[in-house]
Design a binder for these strands. Structure first.
Lengths: 127, 127
DNA sequence: TCACACCTTTACCTTTACGTAAAGGTAAAG
DNA sequence: CTTTACCTTTACGTAAAGGTAAAGGTGTGA
């Protein structure tokens, strides 16, 4: 028997409002089952939410996230789709590699700043 | 003699519109000199723009970027400011480390997907 | 039965990050 | 003098990502 979740439950888990989750549904990012008029979320919906949150932390738009998520649902029997898919993957990889470099650059600068800064502090207030 | 830049020049270099650059000025992210009514950008303004663009690639809001940029202009004689500064640096470092992990995770998944995908393609159309 | 927690839809509101149009100044080239 | 390129300000428009309020359905425990 598969575990399911309510909307409020997931909202708590991911620290967003229920409005946000419904908004993602509106945008086609998730499509939970219904029981009567209520939304029932299965584990795969939860996984999707997790992917969405990660995408957001990385600064992607919902539309970009939509594209990325759909990659996981491609029909592997369609060659054309597969090619397109592969191209998308490579684009994403490039974008992310660029981000990695950006982050590495900033972290380097921040480290330098941190060192300088705490040295200054030690001089000024030798606790 | 120091090199300076026009707004259109910088717009081209960073691949944004002049509107965007003026908007950043409005928000206090840069403050170029003036010659008459025209904006004159010095190398330090260009550096700021570069930092802004990097921040944007990383998904930070202009307000967050503002904070980060200001870190470079802190008065090193004010101990209180220095402490605050140090804390900000550490917050940033943590956020960025989290991002690094997110990216590494996604890149791993993408690599797997890419491999699977091109294997499938080779089977289906053995060019 | 009442209260209460949880859920639903509809619909208007807000912020961020610019786009775009209007109306015009300035300066060098033809 | 006119064209051309480049710049200015002011101001309204817009897309994205939700917030928030209104009005109500559903189920459960006291």
């Amino acid at each position: 028997m598969e575990e399911t979740f309510g909307i409020a439950e997931l909202a708590r888990e991911f620290d967003v409002t229920t409005r946000t989750i419904r908004f993602y549904e509106d945008k086609g990012l998730i499509s939970p089952a219904r029981k009567g008029q209520r939304r029932i979320y299965h584990p795969r919906d939860r996984v999707r939410l997790k992917l969405i949150m990660r995408g957001k932390r990385l600064g992607f738009s919902l539309e970009e996230i939509h594209e990325m998520i759909d990659l996981y649902d491609v029909d592997p029997s369609e060659v054309a789709q597969l090619r397109h898919f592969l191209q998308k993957i490579r684009e994403r990889k490039n974008a992310l590699s660029q981000q990695q470099m950006d982050i590495a650059a900033i972290l380097e600068e921040l480290k330098t700043l941190e060192t300088q800064c705490s040295k200054l502090l030690k001089e000024k207030s030798p606790s």
